[in-house]
Design a protein around this nucleic acid. Sequence first.
DNA 1: CTGAAAGCGCTTACAG
DNA 2: CTGAAAGCGCTTACAG
Lengths: 343, 343
Amino acid sequence: MSKKLSINDIANELHVAKSTVSFILNGKAKEKRISEELTERVLKFVEEKGYRPNQLAKSLSTGKTKMICLLVEKISDYFFSHIAFHLEALAYKNGYKIIYCSTENDPEKTRELISLLRARHVDGYIITPPPGIETEIQALLTDGLPVVLFDRYLPGIPTDYVGLDNYHGTYEAVEFLVKALSKRIALVTLNSGQTQMLERRDGYMTALKKYKLKPLILKVPFENPMETTVKQSLQFIKDNPDIDAIIFATNYLALSGIKAINEAGLQIPSDIGVIAFDDHDVFRIYNPSISAIAQPLDEMAKQLFKILLDKLENRVRLKDLSKIIIQPELILRGSTTDTLVRK
Amino acid sequence: MSKKLSINDIANELHVAKSTVSFILNGKAKEKRISEELTERVLKFVEEKGYRPNQLAKSLSTGKTKMICLLVEKISDYFFSHIAFHLEALAYKNGYKIIYCSTENDPEKTRELISLLRARHVDGYIITPPPGIETEIQALLTDGLPVVLFDRYLPGIPTDYVGLDNYHGTYEAVEFLVKALSKRIALVTLNSGQTQMLERRDGYMTALKKYKLKPLILKVPFENPMETTVKQSLQFIKDNPDIDAIIFATNYLALSGIKAINEAGLQIPSDIGVIAFDDHDVFRIYNPSISAIAQPLDEMAKQLFKILLDKLENRVRLKDLSKIIIQPELILRGSTTDTLVRK
DNA sequence: CTGAAAGCGCTTACAG
DNA sequence: CTGAAAGCGCTTACAG
């Protein structure tokens, strides 16, 4: 096990001061008026030896860890794992590493996670907050730590935020379905008071009102195992035989819902049109392919990271907040297009 | 911004020695013969103040960061993001945090990532290695860092390893298809020399030989965008109209393949049976549902973490290697079961 | 440009 | 049980 090189070793071997080496390594050679020749010599030596400064020591002394935390509902979800992938690329380019954590929408677990991450002094936070952690988020802000929320926000807590225009997502979906001659448009959503869900519901309600249709909503609990959701969806479909289109408020609700539609023996789109919130591999491949209200994943990741980085590098003051509302993309596929000619 | 409490502050406020506080906090009170009364008092104070020791300082002094690195091909893939989720739960229980990185199967990028992670002194590595990074893995081992490879290994580099019995996966898939009266069974795989791919191919070849069938293999480049893979698969299907079953060597190959089958106007399973390697949400939901050679995700994660933890906590010597070969589960669904009665 | 020095917040022998 | 002290490997004023 070859002993790791330290800045001390380098200073000794090269017969220069430790501080000089440190300045050169941190690109402050010019500023400190260190000769080009010496700078060259140190840089070359470091290069040859493959020296990497110990980040821990650096962090302890600067107070910066160059780590950011990605706290999402569940890392294995399609939406979150793709955001994670895009964020990683951006972090990498800027010298940051990402620690991921899944809240599973549990406030207690989230509190503990934030506490653990604070002990590790991560520099910034990207969070999809569960309900009930207003205090902890506020504490982060009070302590001067950059926090960007995404996907949903906490009303009353002023933070940076990146989210979809959920309202227009469902609104336009309804509008499209109405023009495709649907008369009975249902919404399957979560039993949740989170902002993104409320916005999706509002968009649906407002659009229905505009077209003088009656709303029909199924709310399923977030904690449901998939089979239960399938059962509930099936029951819902059976109880309301006049449904001719369903909007699902999340992609996993759509997955269960499609299963239920199959089990009910109904055909998509001839018996029932389907639009899902959040795109997913399944929807592209499925036969017929499933229309979706897509969130532009890399655009969201880009905005998230930009806002965070601007604060980490003090280009923007902590108090100055950005709210970025990204427009969804209604991707029309086989599960709805046929409805146009249905009747 | 309330100043963070340090162990020094605590020692001062309680009029005890810093070392005493440190011992108590690290559960060495008994060992150091510190009175229960004092122990209580310190613990209570710490609890009240919500003190969390600075992990950076701790790490610098102990040399342990309690961080592990998860280096996978791509964090957004179904397989890897689910492994990530299961690993996270285990890490959490044991006080570890996980940094994820995507290699994108690029050795150059992977080298850089490992170098960066070494500078951060992560305690252990869980890696799906791309080809050509034998030297770096060997260096980690030489320097006494625990490394567990998974999904594929590097021949000639002795490491801990957790992987699927890929050979039996495809072997049994072929065997099932043969019994279901398939006569022309194709394999769509990657143009890759990685062990997991070779094993899958071997299982296919051996089983075909046993049943005196001729192999028919399409190899697509890993870097292909999805559309290209769809096109190649479509061409392959058209060029070989006698194909009556296809095994896809990865789930994303299957996604493209199913699309190609649709575009070719063929019916699953009546025209063509389908089995995919690695399960996926799509396969459960798809109509007909798609048979899959499933990797038990949480079992794999459990084994991976156990091996790593045993080494991190010195329960197992570094030199003693574990190789865990997990049996796949052939999940039969609609895409194949019908073939039994086809002819 | 250099060198000695303090400090980041812990851990851990060591002498009492 | 306590206290003083060294050390982990950096950064950064400070005096020359």
